[in-house]
Design a protein around this nucleic acid. Sequence first.
DNA 1: ATGGCGTACACCGTACGA
Length: 269
Amino acid sequence: MSAAVPGGFQIATWNVNSLRVRHEQLLEWLRAHSPDVVALQETKIQDHDFPADAIRAAGYHCAFSGQKTYNGVALLSKHPLADLVRDIPDFDDAPRRVLAATIAAPGGARFRVVNLYVPNGQAPGSEKFAYKLHWLAALTRWLKNEAAAQPGLVVLGDFNVAPEDRDVHDPAAWLGSVHVSPEERAALRAITDLELCDAFRQFEQAEKSFSWWDYRQGAFRRNAGLRIDLILVHRQLLPKLQGCRIDVEPRRVERASDHTPVIATFRPD
DNA sequence: ATGGCGTACACCGTACGA
């Protein structure tokens, strides 16, 4: 089984699609699962409105990089966050999509966590699609250095790319579309080629496991989803990786985010 | 079928997401 192992060090990612709307759901999820680290995307909240006090009261340090209306990322951690980096270094980009931090686990392991909200890309051929590929190329140049310098590297978030056809509910219907196009998959492969391994695929998983479902047309009921929320783990961390699972429960509630959390569990030593 | 649904901003509809 790939279930979280009690006592393991849990690192999670969740695109909450508005932290204002999902605030109570997030706090409830933290109470229920008690993850060590959570990377949030699409917080859609400016830094001066970030609910830092409530998060601290729940037992988490937090760092955040937000803006009005769109985008926005945050890191929550039971352990102190150090060496924060906002945005891709040496890449001029207005949206707040990247936040990195170093976290020391109680057992002594040291994780460098890079939280991403990759651009949507709209449709192949569009300007937004070109931006997405340009953005991923800049990200990859940075991660190449990080992967060489940081053996505890974990890159996670909303990648807006489904790595393989088995990560797509209907590959024929999606053929050539944004999130599954050969260009996007090649860009993702350039990242995984940096010895950054898809944690989810290190374990046996149920078929048709997804992390996002459209709000429309009863997509969740029909399990018509995509797996686009990923946790990439540096090869040197794989011996510590104990499991990786998608928690679909938060997608079942009223006013759910269209994405659901993904959790990786590590041996804490 | 550029709509379907949800969120944000702030108009009473438009932009954007995936």
